[in-house]
């Protein structure tokens, strides 16, 4: 069986790819139909959906039975949020992640001139 994290990703992808909100049964059928994946129990899909709902990635329409789930926002918007953490001017970024290039102040320009002058 897939780790829960991978299943969450597959469920999200199925929801993003679908124009309409989906029920757990729809999702089970779509995921089970995928190449290389085993038969999924509907309870597993429901567990994954409730985890995703708790974390704020999907919502469900409460007026219909069975419940229909949809992503809170598009894949592109989630990607933008992610990239904002990485590339945006968030003040606490250095405490959160270490980027390969960037995130430095004016003072370093002066520091560089001194270093190169004093060699």
């Amino acid at each position: 069986m897939l780790p829960l994290g991978d299943l969450e990703k597959k469920v999200m992808e199925a929801l993003w790819d679908s124009p309409d909100a989906l029920t757990a049964i729809d999702l089970r059928d779509r995921l089970s139909g995928q190449k290389g994946s085993r038969e999924l129990a509907q309870t597993t899909v429901l567990t994954v959906l409730s985890r995703l709902e708790d974390k704020g990635y999907v919502t469900r329409a409460r007026d219909s039975r069975p419940h229909r789930y949809r992503p809170v926002t598009t894949r592109a918007n989630f990607m933008a949020e992610l990239m904002h953490d990485v590339l945006g001017a968030a003040r606490d970024r250095e405490a959160v992640l270490a980027r390969f290039v960037g995130g430095v102040s004016e003072d370093d320009a002066a520091a560089l001139r001194r270093i190169l002058a004093g060699r």
């Binding site: 590339l87 945006g88 001017a89 290039v101 960037g102 995130g103 430095v104 370093d108 320009a109 270093i115």
Partner: peptide, 23 residues
């Protein structure tokens, strides 16, 4: 490559070239 800009995030809050990379 980063200085070339990025469409997802507004250019104003985008911070690319860092003098640390020059050091």
């Amino acid at each position: 490559g980063l200085s070339a800009g990025d469409a997802t995030i507004g250019a104003s809050e985008f911070e690319a070239e860092g003098p640390a990379s020059a050091v």
